[in-house]
Design a protein around this nucleic acid. Structure first.
Lengths: 247, 247
DNA sequence: CGGCCGTTTGAGTCACCTCAACCACGGTGG
DNA sequence: CCACCGTGGTTGAGGTGACTCAAACGGCCG
């Protein structure tokens, strides 16, 4: 049994990048005792996980975290990628709806067990904290985009974000060749919900980007970025504050 | 010396609500050894703090965290209120510019010392983590506002947020009488930067809210909310997902 | 009194939304 | 094999909410 668990985790696609890589074999085994894999098709609501019962690590696929208004308007507030954590410790009820954007494989484990590990394993808590702080930064980056960028800039920024696989984790093609192939994990409607736009506007902006030769659409979901530099210029990347200067 | 430090902290206005309330007397003393109070006028840039040198707790006043685009457009990504923490552990450079919105008093302490305490004191790390997760939730709430709400809804939501003092901490008047007096900590320009609008639009929306009798402007910065319920209705509060239902 | 700053007010414009038609693709079934 | 339909995406025409530019206001301070 222990053997099974360990080989299972050893073969895990996100073994190196997920939270659990800081656990020692015993801890891993104890966490996995009440764990299981779960697969979802695209467009499925995820319930149970992220409530008080289960947390999960994304093994493959993309998950949308959604907030909605009573009249149906909705905003995707985060995309979870492989190795990301799904759940909200220390709170009875998650403030978001989680929905799969693609087919997804989750590694689900007992919230109780994880909470206990969080209390016992300082390394785990540390890593969890660092990722939480990164999530704050990411959310605030996106606030700048939502509040201040034009439709064109938003779409450009989104394409770059996808191309770069958000930061660096779980991403091999970061060296950014001049011609980058990108597979969009989101439909036009979902892109709109992520960018605070309407799907028609997203479509038109993609159209424009193709018309001026910055991207090329191979398929609905597949595009290649022909001119990364130009796309970056359009996306209006933020100014990094030179924070070290001065008192 | 130790006596001075302890009485100082005992008399602190945010003693009960700030991070440091989980520290024991010795820890508090060690943190305070290299600490100092600092006062700022409104509209001042805060440097040094939030870099690698110092962190701080807001004792009084309001601080804006700002992100900006190269062309000058800017977005306030958070407001820090009394008892909030200012700083970015585990990262050499803060991704925001911090600026005072009002006169501000900070309790500044050594980043080194605080980092060490964070590693040693599990309670502190726990509280810090919980607040980080709350910050994620708050930022994502605001993403919904920025991405999906109309100018009118944004302004209404902002007034409610200020009236309620964000959640509950450091706020006594949460029982929401029918006539609530509110002092705006932000200028029109700043409100605009927080809400992803232009100042003229903010002004017009306030105008409208007064015209229909929902608020009354006493002063530039002082208003009373005459009809809280109606303001809430207009603000388009989000739908709380009934997350417990289902598998 | 005169100048400054934050704010209000007005008029005109534009980016994005709305509504609606159309298209391309894939699956289904006769 | 082809007619049918459903889904997701594109395209077009028109409307409008928020922006832009500009002027006027009102308090504050010298």
């Amino acid at each position: 049994m222990a053997n099974y668990v360990r080989t299972s985790c050893l073969a895990c696609a996100v073994r190196e990048s997920a939270l659990c890589h800081v656990l020692n074999p015993q801890q891993l085994a104890s966490l996995n005792r009440r764990s299981f894999r779960k697969r979802y098709a695209a467009g499925q609501l995820i319930s149970g996980v992220s409530a008080t019962e289960w947390y999960a690590t994304i093994v493959s696929g993309v998950i949308k975290l959604i907030k909605a208004l009573p009249d149906g308007r909705q905003q995707i507030v985060a995309l979870l990628l492989p190795s990301d954590f799904l759940g909200r410790p220390f709170k009875a009820t998650s403030p978001y709806v989680a929905e799969t954007a693609t087919t997804v494989e989750l590694c689900c484990y007992s919230a109780r067990d994880f909470d206990r590990l969080l209390a016992e394993q300082a390394d785990l808590k540390q890593l969890f904290l660092e990722r939480a702080l990164d999530a704050v930064d990411a959310a605030r980056d996106w606030m700048l985009l939502l509040g201040r960028k034009s439709a064109r800039e938003k779409v450009a920024a989104f394409l770059l974000m996808i191309a770069r696989g958000r930061g660096s984790r779980a991403c091999a093609t970061c060296v950014a060749d001049q011609f980058e192939r990108v597979e969009l994990p989101l439909s036009r409607t979902e892109m709109a919900d992520y960018l605070g736009l309407r799907l028609e506007t997203v479509s038109r902006q993609l159209n424009w980007l193709e018309a001026v030769g910055i991207v090329k659409r191979l398929d609905r979901r597949d595009i290649t970025i022909c001119n990364v530099g130009e796309l970056e210029r359009i996306s209006g990347s933020e100014t990094t504050p030179m924070n070290s200067a001065g008192v």
